[in-house]
């Protein structure tokens, strides 16, 4: 497993982050760094702000306070073409896939290439097909999103997120709703990309099996405390955490405490 180098500049740095919806604070005092090639998993119970944090990291929402830097640059300080250049270096796969219904899978995957590269059409087709192949969707290039299953949509969304070979890939619940075999092959793909291409992954997930396989580091958010309650190697947290709730989470037991 790739361990992140403390000296290298972090791919993502979050400092003093606070998120609020209409005055209600959802998360506050959130600080962490993610290094190159790390598989970083955000955990927590339902409604604790995992997706909120993710949406702030990819620039959909502006932080209430604090700074989020991607590749050392503040997304909200960058404007116009700088911001677009920065956004092109990240890939995002949404929970429901968010594929464009009017395009087949090949066109969906090819779209980022069409919009931001000068590759010839045949090259874009080849690269898009290649990305679909590594997520196991070879042969489905001509299918439309409403013709494939939910799990396939998720994988197609991952292929689209990888289209421009981004440095950071954000995945929202990538393996929810996938069968265990597909889910495991997705895990292997994530690990291979992280190791060979040094792609940094930020993943929101609940799949414990998957977390123990892929995560180089996790953070855990809590709804009551509205911040990070645990950070580190998932195995260590499971076995050694002082926090009963954190241990329960990893051991899939009902939490007895934490008010």
């Amino acid at each position: 497993m790739t361990s992140h180098d403390e000296n290298a500049e972090p791919m993502i740095s979050v400092e003093g982050f606070r998120a609020a919806y209409e005055g209600n604070v959802v998360l506050e005092n959130v600080n962490f760094n993610v290094g190159k090639g790390e598989v970083f998993v955000i955990l927590g119970g339902s409604g604790c702000g995992k997706s909120t944090l993710l949406k702030h990291m990819i620039g959909l929402y502006r932080p209430d306070a604090g700074v989020i830097r991607l590749f050392g640059e503040d997304l909200w300080a960058a404007t116009g073409s700088d911001r677009r250049r920065l956004l092109r270096k990240i890939g995002v796969a949404y929970q429901s896939g968010a594929l464009f219904g009017s395009m087949d899978l090949l066109s969906n995957t090819r779209l980022p290439l069409e919009e931001s590269t000068d590759l010839p059409m045949s090259a874009m087709n080849l690269i898009a097909a290649m990305k679909l192949r590594i997520v196991g969707l070879s042969g489905f290039e001509g299918h439309y999103p409403n013709e494939i299953s939910g799990g396939m949509k998720k994988r197609a969304a991952l292929a689209r997120a990888l289209a421009l070979d981004p440095g950071i890939v954000f995945l929202d619940e990538p393996s929810a709703g996938l069968d265990p075999i597909t889910s495991a092959s997705l895990d292997q793909l994530i690990l291979r990309l992280a190791e060979s291409l040094s792609v940094t992954f930020v993943i929101v997930t609940h799949e414990l099996a998957s977390i123990f396989t892929i995560a180089s580091r996790v953070i855990m958010l809590d709804k009551q405390r509205k911040t990070i309650v645990a950070e580190g190697d998932p195995r260590k947290l499971r076995d050694e955490s002082q926090d009963e709730w954190v241990r329960s989470f990893f051991q899939r037991k009902e939490a007895e405490v934490v008010e």
């Binding site: 090949l106 045949s122 087709n125 080849l126 898009a128 097909a129 290649m130 192949r133 290039e141 001509g142």
Partner: peptide, 8 residues
């Protein structure tokens, strides 16, 4: 080695 152009 196995990458093929998609059949369009």
């Amino acid at each position: 080695q196995d990458v093929r152009a998609p059949d369009l």
